[in-house]
C-alpha cells in the first residue's frame, strides 16, 4: 500500500520535483533552526532532577509502626522477581512471628521493575527514588538484610500486618486482632 505524505497528489513531474525540493528544503531549514536552539539536556551530576516519591530505584525493607521488621519472608517477592535477584530464608521467632533469617538482594541483577513491591503483602519491601548505587566491586551490590532495613514505614507508615493476620504472636492472641471475634468455645452448648 502506498502512503502519501503530501496532501495533494502532484499533478505533473515538474510539480513533483518542486514539491520534493520544497520538502527537502523544509527539512534542511528545520535542522538549521534547531542548530541554534538551546539544548534541552539536563546535565546530570550538576543538576539532579527532583524525583517523584514513587520512582522505582533502590529497594528497602521497612518496619511497622511498632518498629518490628515487616518482612515475614513469605517468598512472594522472590517468586515474582523476573531476574531472581531476591533470596531469603524464613524462620520463626520465639513468639511465633515469621521473619527472614537472612534476606539478600543482588542489585547487580535487579532491574527495578517494582514487582516485588507490588507482591509484598506486608508493605515491607519498597522501592525508593535513590538510584545512585554504583560500585566498582560488583559484590558490594549484593545487599544483606542489615543493609536493606530502614527505620520507618516508607510509603505505608501505618500498616502492621500482624495486627490483621490472625496468627498468635506477641502482637496479639486469638481474637485480639483487627476485626476478630473472641475464640469460639467449642464445648459450649449454647445455640
Amino acid at each position: 500500500m502506498r502512503v502519501d505524505l503530501i496532501d495533494k497528489e502532484p499533478s505533473g513531474p515538474i510539480q513533483a520535483v518542486w514539491e520534493g525540493a520544497r520538502a527537502i528544503a523544509a527539512g534542511f531549514a528545520l535542522t538549521l533552526k534547531h542548530l541554534f536552539r538551546k539544548p534541552i539536556t539536563e546535565e546530570y551530576p550538576e543538576f539532579k532532577r527532583p524525583l517523584p516519591s514513587r520512582t522505582r530505584a533502590r529497594i528497602v525493607l521497612t518496619r511497622d509502626p511498632d518498629g518490628g521488621e515487616r518482612c515475614v519472608a513469605c517468598y512472594l517477592c522472590s517468586a515474582v522477581c523476573p531476574v531472581s535477584c531476591i533470596s531469603m530464608q524464613s524462620a520463626e521467632r520465639e513468639d511465633g512471628r515469621r521473619y527472614a533469617a537472612w534476606f539478600r538482594i543482588n542489585f547487580a541483577r535487579c532491574i527495578y521493575c517494582g514487582l516485588c513491591e507490588e507482591a509484598c503483602p506486608t508493605s515491607s519491601i519498597q522501592l525508593t527514588p535513590m538510584f545512585e548505587t554504583c560500585e566498582r566491586d560488583i559484590l558490594k551490590l549484593v545487599y544483606e538484610k542489615e543493609d536493606l532495613l530502614v527505620n520507618h514505614g516508607g510509603k505505608d507508615p501505618d500498616y502492621n500486618f500482624y495486627k490483621h493476620a490472625g496468627v498468635v504472636t506477641a502482637i496479639g492472641g486469638k481474637g485480639e486482632h483487627a476485626g476478630e471475634d473472641q475464640p469460639v468455645n467449642v464445648r459450649s452448648n449454647m445455640p
Partner: peptide
C-alpha cells in the same frame, strides 16, 4: 462482620 477464631 467480625471473623470467627478458634483456639489451636
Amino acid at each position: 462482620g467480625k471473623k470467627r477464631t478458634y483456639p489451636d
